[in-house]
């Protein structure tokens, strides 16, 4: 039996041993033209953890996610204020190469969107344009490793030359995850990655997310409360463009501090 002091010390040590901060948002405000979508968001994304962003539609969670790899740059009227850092470096700094940033911070979308090319080419495309491989055997290795990490290799190894679009929805989504992994990103952003998948495919992706956490930092936007509770370690709740509450997932889903979180996760507004 541990003494009370020893237990306290152990608990204290656990708090201190929180993984280091990988990405950090400070006073992030986002405007689409005249309308403000995010208000002064301060959020830490910790390394090798899954952070879930939850909240009702239009709350700003996807907007925040898209800020993390500057996907909002593609929208002309969108303006981002405040600072977002990756390993301490400001990702909105003028010197940052956006293409390189998006290789470090990859993204998986709601609807599986494989390129209209072979399964092999879907994976090899990224490493090729980023110059990560030269020889056929190097590409072969990247393709196999990425597909294995995405839990898809065994299912597709005999038809790598078939079109990626011919796979089932769940397989396509895992192909997109493999494609994101292929360029060795550090952070993977997922925007509703399972909303178009059946429960079995969803379970496979969730299992995959848990494994990927060993090597990557993951931020996931999801409308499924159960999914957020299952896959994440940290949860951030957004409402009307504000970050309402952020904390340990276990606590957020059993005893949240904020009334709005409580109402949202128990199905009282939304």
């Amino acid at each position: 039996m541990m003494s009370e002091a020893a237990v306290e010390e152990a608990v204290g040590a656990k708090v201190d041993s929180q993984p280091p901060v990988k990405m950090q948002g400070r006073m992030v405000c986002v405007y689409y033209g005249d309308s403000q979508a995010l208000y002064d968001v301060n959020l830490d994304i910790r390394k090798n953890q899954v952070t879930a962003l939850i909240g009702p539609s239009g709350c700003g969670k996807s907007t925040f996610l898209r800020c993390l790899n500057r996907m909002n740059d593609t929208i002309d009227t969108c303006q981002v204020k405040g600072s977002i850092t990756l390993d301490g470096g400001d990702i909105y700094d003028a010197s940052v190469d956006v293409v390189e940033l998006r290789a470090r911070v990859g993204m998986v979308f709601q609807k599986p969107n494989p390129f209209p090319k072979s399964i092999y080419e879907n994976i090899a495309y990224g490493p090729r344009i980023h110059g990560l491989a030269r020889t056929k055997s190097e590409f072969d290795e990247i393709v196999e490793t990425s597909l294995r990490k995405a839990g898809l290799f065994e299912e597709v190894k005999d038809r790598l030359t078939s079109p990626g679009t011919g796979l089932s929805g769940g397989q396509q989504q895992r192909l997109c995850i493999a494609r994101a992994i292929a360029v060795s990103p550090e952070v993977i952003l997922m925007d509703e990655p399972c909303s178009a998948l059946d429960p079995i495919a969803t379970a496979k992706v969730e299992e995959l997310i848990d494994e990927l956490r060993q090597n990557f930092t993951i931020v996931i936007v999801t409308h499924s409360m159960q999914q957020a509770a299952r896959v994440s370690q940290r949860t951030a709740m957004f409402h009307l463009g504000n970050l309402v509450e952020e904390g340990d997932t276990d606590k957020m889903f059993t005893n949240p501090d904020d009334q709005r979180t409580q109402d949202y996760i128990t199905g009282r507004f939304g």
């Binding site: 409360m225 889903f253 059993t254 949240p256 979180t261 409580q262 996760i265 128990t266």
Partner: peptide, 10 residues
């Protein structure tokens, strides 16, 4: 059926 959360779960 409902996967209760937070206060409902308690």
């Amino acid at each position: 059926k409902r996967q209760p959360m937070a206060a409902d779960l308690r």
